[in-house]
Computed example of a mutant assay.
Amino acid sequence: MEKLNFVKNGVSKLPPGFRFQPTDEELVFQYLKCKVFSYPLPASIIPEINVCKYDPWDLPGNCDPQERHFFSPKEAKYRNGNRMNRTTKCGYWKATGSDKRISSSTSTCNGIVGVRKTLIFYEGKSPKGSRTHWVLHEYRLVSVETGAANSSHNYVNEIGDWVLCRLSMKKRSVESDGSGTHHKHRQNTAVQTTRPRLMFDFMMVGKTNSSTSSSCSSSSNIMEVSSNASDHEETSGYAHF
């Protein structure tokens, strides 16, 4: 089967009516693991880009869908250290909360698990930056080895040179004009929340125009759907609405 490629010029492009909504487990074991071990990916849907080379509002893609995914290479902050560089031109990413461990529900994966770290973007210089509403989930692949027989501790080692990032923005950034939120953030998010979603009407394809009445001639194959459309139909990371 030919591998599907939905990335063009560094931006993911899905067919009309489809969205990319993978679970944490799918992101780790279907995409990140395949990327790290050079296995074939289910589909070429996640572009490669160094996330910390850009401010979040300058990353490729648009706000529809709201979440964006990227494979980002690990870049050490210091030459002789493992701490990742998370500084951008206008600010920095700061970790918040505790890391979440992600295990596979289908197999043990030979002691391989995923770790999800949550980061918040701050504008300005550390440590006095202004908190924004940009959120980054960073997924990493790690190996877990049990210690000695009389020890219950696990030893964790990171695997590979890639992380998988999921970028999003908190919805309350539209309702608040507080400081620390870039004007581009508010403008782009406001456009997204007021613009109705569009879906392609596949049932219209193939019909001839001979029987089209004048009342239908002004309509197109694009119809508006409510912004409250159901998101329940999901199969392996793809949702059709």
Rank of each mutant, 00 (worst) to 15 (best):
F6T: 00
F6H: 13
G17D: 05
F20R: 00
Q21W: 06
P22T: 08
P22W: 08
D24N: 11
D24R: 01
E26D: 07
Q30I: 00
S38I: 02
L41I: 05
P42Y: 03
P42S: 06
S44I: 04
P47G: 04
P47L: 11
Y54G: 00
P56E: 03
P56R: 02
P56L: 06
W57D: 05
L59Y: 02
N62R: 10
C63T: 12
E67C: 08
E67V: 08
F70P: 01
R79P: 05
N80C: 14
G81M: 14
G81S: 15
N82H: 13
N85R: 13
D99F: 03
T108F: 13
T108W: 08
N110Q: 13
V115D: 01
E123W: 09
K125C: 04
S126W: 04
K128M: 07
R131D: 06
R131V: 10
H137L: 07
E138P: 03
R140A: 12
S143H: 10
A149V: 09
Y155Q: 12
V156Q: 01
M169N: 06
K170P: 01
K171L: 10
G178T: 08
S179D: 12
T181R: 11
H182N: 11
K184I: 10
A190Q: 15
T193K: 13
L198A: 05
D201I: 02
F202C: 05
M203S: 12
M203Q: 14
V205Y: 06
K207F: 06
N209S: 13
S213A: 05
S220E: 07
A229P: 00
S230T: 12
D231G: 04
E233L: 13
A239Y: 03
H240K: 13
H240E: 09
